[in-house]
Design a protein around this nucleic acid. Structure first.
Length: 312
DNA sequence: AACCAGGTGAGGA
DNA sequence: TCCTCACATGGT
């Protein structure tokens, strides 16, 4: 290897880590848009691009100028969470215990609220490859292009950018009927006073009510139902008790946790089993029960169960 | 062809 | 108040 041909030397920073599995945290399905290349993981965060990889007890990182990546990523990866204590609290039975052993080190990721809202709105009644495509389309159309390591990246578009776009242009990103929801939400969050402060300070139940609020019998944030609200609150507002219950989690609950529910309720539920998703009422019954079962860190349990369910 | 994928809102019972 | 069903898109 001739050093004359070596590119500019990268400035690599390191964060000491413990009880953190980068791979599991990134591929478990909680966050979209991470890209793997030559041993590094790349993503647009905070209006810049960063790449990370695990090296022993350290997380190595290199990012674009102008962002304090050490602090940003410590928060992003929730490195302050006492994972040992959290896993101990949710380790209630053999099944979750198995998931914890397999994916130990998986941490929840603290996502940007605005991006998280749009991402999980798009995720409804869809699948992960398609969600990734939809988000990539949105970012390429309305985000800022940044070249890093010779590759093209795009930041997530601002609420203002999506708010001034007409629905048909949003539809060109192949988000289907969700385009109206995205546009309306962008306008609500770009113009009106931000509700993020309230969502941060309110406890879980009140924050969820705020997201699902109705005015004149109409939802304020169309496209956010109980499941999307739980994802937003768990991934962006530190409501670690939230237990998003999607079709995968529902299957796990019915197969492994049916003993937590009355037989009568389960038989009524199985009558409706032809449906692919829960009605609002059943959503609350089941997600609340699982939250009570796993406790204040139920959201962590959910993420381990979700990954476990999807990877067999 | 029918069904599924990190569900939701509108409208009727 | 609760339940049913259409809904864009793309893969199997």
């Amino acid at each position: 290897m001739n050093p004359m041909f070596k590119a500019a030397i990268e400035r690599v920073s390191r964060i000491e880590i413990k009880d953190f599995d980068l791979e599991h945290s990134l591929v478990c399905g909680q966050v979209f848009r991470w890209r793997r290349n030559k041993g590094w993981w790349y993503r647009a965060i905070e209006n810049g691009i960063v790449k990370v990889r695990k090296a022993g007890n350290y997380l190595e990182l290199v990012g674009t100028e102008g962002v304090d990546w050490g602090n940003v990523l410590s928060s992003y990866f929730r490195l302050g969470d006492n994972l040992g204590k959290i896993l101990c609290e949710i380790d209630k039975d053999d099944f979750i215990s198995q998931a914890i052993r397999r994916y130990r080190g998986l941490r929840l990721i603290r996502q940007d609220p605005w991006e998280c809202i749009i991402s999980y709105m798009i995720a409804t009644n869809s699948n992960i490859p398609q969600i990734e495509r939809n988000l990539e389309n949105l970012c390429r159309s309305f985000g800022k292009r940044i070249i890093f390591d010779g590759m093209d990246f795009y930041t997530f578009p601002t609420a203002e950018a999506l708010a001034r776009t007409d629905v048909s242009t949003l539809r060109a990103c192949k988000v289907g009927y969700r385009a109206e929801f995205i546009g309306a939400t962008a306008q609500a969050l770009a113009s009106g006073g931000s509700i993020f402060q309230s969502l941060n300070s309110l406890p879980y139940e009140s924050a969820r009510e705020l997201l699902l609020e109705k005015l004149d019998q109409r939802k304020v944030f169309k496209g956010i139902g109980p499941k999307v609200a739980d994802c937003i609150l768990l991934f962006s507002f530190d409501k670690l008790a939230a237990f998003p219950t999607d079709v995968w989690i529902l299957r796990t609950v019915l197969q492994k946790y049916s003993h937590l529910f009355e037989k009568e309720y389960l038989s009524k539920l199985s009558l409706k089993a032809s449906k692919r998703s829960l009605g609002v009422r059943d959503y609350y019954i089941i997600s609340r029960k699982m939250r009570e079962y796993f406790g204040r860190f139920a959201g962590y349990a959910q993420e381990y169960l979700y990954h476990f369910a999807r990877t067999g």
